[in-house]
């Protein structure tokens, strides 16, 4: 499945945010408070592929996806779309190339604009179709996402969450992108409509030949939709590989923890053994605090060794130096790699 041409690549991406650094701070020569939401990420997305991006809240998944669609100017690193790097802010063609579906369908649509206005504005501005074809094309987009044509004249508040997410998908598809970023597209929806939206995304991906980055903290969903999976922790990718291998044989202790904390219904055997079916993520220590560093370190972020060390049950002295991604198994795009000292493969 994964051998198509590279459509999107991210190399050494760093996105840092500075806290408020007022005049008083400058006079007192206090250094700005810097948070590195994304800290040196490499990714490749190939044509027709779905890449799952998982990790806990605040690990930088959303920041990474917003960088890719050009909402943030990366602090360092390169984003390549169809082989050509994005210089500064993306060009119109590059904007069209990658589009994003947002998490919250209740805030992702302009409450003051009808669906027709939202879609029409994009079709006209990017000159996707001639002006007299805008309405026809808008209706086609609604057909694509399974909404009735009369939706064109309605405002977002007249729709349910699932319907709104369909409108959000139609808006992203209006620009005819090659890459679709789905940033937690179903986590704000009722469980009963989640499956519908996921199936819609997968169908559209198939029929329109899209490549997709599917961002989620829901392990079960990622396992179902993605060909490859990347696990993020505190701004880094700590494990990546073909989905089945990552889920079957997780090499990084954090991935194991994530998989172990997926709630499951108790089976007969487990119930008889009296075993707990959910192992909660230990509360200590607070990861967000660990993510914020008060001084800008080098782009390699070599400050404190493996970031997972404070929470890791199998931490050893060697973890004081942070390992890069090491080979677990496979080759080429099928490589399964993890950033852990316990993995003995080559970096």
């Amino acid at each position: 499945m994964t051998s198509g041409a590279e459509v999107l690549a991210v190399e050494g991406l760093v996105q840092q945010f500075e806290g408020r650094h007022g005049l008083a701070d400058r006079i007192a020569r206090r250094p700005p408070h810097v948070v590195r939401a994304v800290d040196g990420v490499d990714l490749v997305l190939r044509e027709g592929e779905t890449l799952g991006l998982v990790g806990e809240s605040g690990c930088g998944k959303s920041t990474l996806s917003r960088c890719v669609v050009g909402l943030y100017q990366p602090t360092a690193g390169v984003i390549r779309l169809a082989g050509s790097p994005v210089a500064g802010s993306p060009t119109r063609a590059q904007r069209r190339f990658v589009q994003i579906v947002f998490q919250d369908p209740y805030s992702s649509l302009n409450p003051r604009m009808t669906v027709g206005q939202t879609l029409g504005e994009l079709l006209r501005y990017h000159r996707i179709v001639p002006r007299d074809q805008v309405e026809r094309r808008s209706k086609e987009l609604l057909d694509l996402v399974g909404l009735p044509h009369r939706a064109l004249g309605q405002t977002p508040r007249q729709f349910s969450g699932g319907q709104r997410q369909r409108i959000g998908i139609a808006r992203a598809l209006a620009l005819e992108p090659k890459v679709l970023i789905a940033d937690e597209p179903v986590s704000a929806l009722d469980v009963s409509v989640q499956a519908n939206i996921i199936n819609l995304l997968l169908d559209l991906k198939q029929s329109l030949g899209l490549s997709m980055i599917f961002v989620s903290h829901n392990m079960a969903v990622v396992r179902q939709v993605s060909d490859r999976t990347a696990v993020m922790y505190l701004g880094r990718i700590i494990e990546t590989g073909p989905t089945e291998q990552v889920f079957h044989a997780p090499a990084h202790p954090y991935t194991r923890l994530l998989l172990g904390s997926v709630p499951r219904l108790a089976t007969h055997v487990a119930a008889r053994n009296g075993g707990a079916t959910i192992s909660p993520i230990p509360a200590e220590p607070v990861p967000v605090a660990a993510a914020s560093i008060d001084e800008a370190t080098g782009p390699e972020g070599a400050a404190g060794g493996c970031r997972y060390r404070p929470r890791c049950p199998v931490a050893v002295a060697a973890c004081a130096t942070e390992p890069g991604l090491r080979l677990v198994s496979g080759e080429a795009d099928g490589r399964h790699r993890a950033a852990c000292q316990h993995v003995t493969g080559a970096e």
């Binding site: 909402l71 904007r95 409450p111 808006r171």
Partner: peptide, 13 residues
């Protein structure tokens, strides 16, 4: 910072 404003920016308007 509402997502509709981000969406408008992401679509290059």
């Amino acid at each position: 910072n509402q997502e509709y404003a981000l969406a408008a920016r992401a679509s290059g308007l």
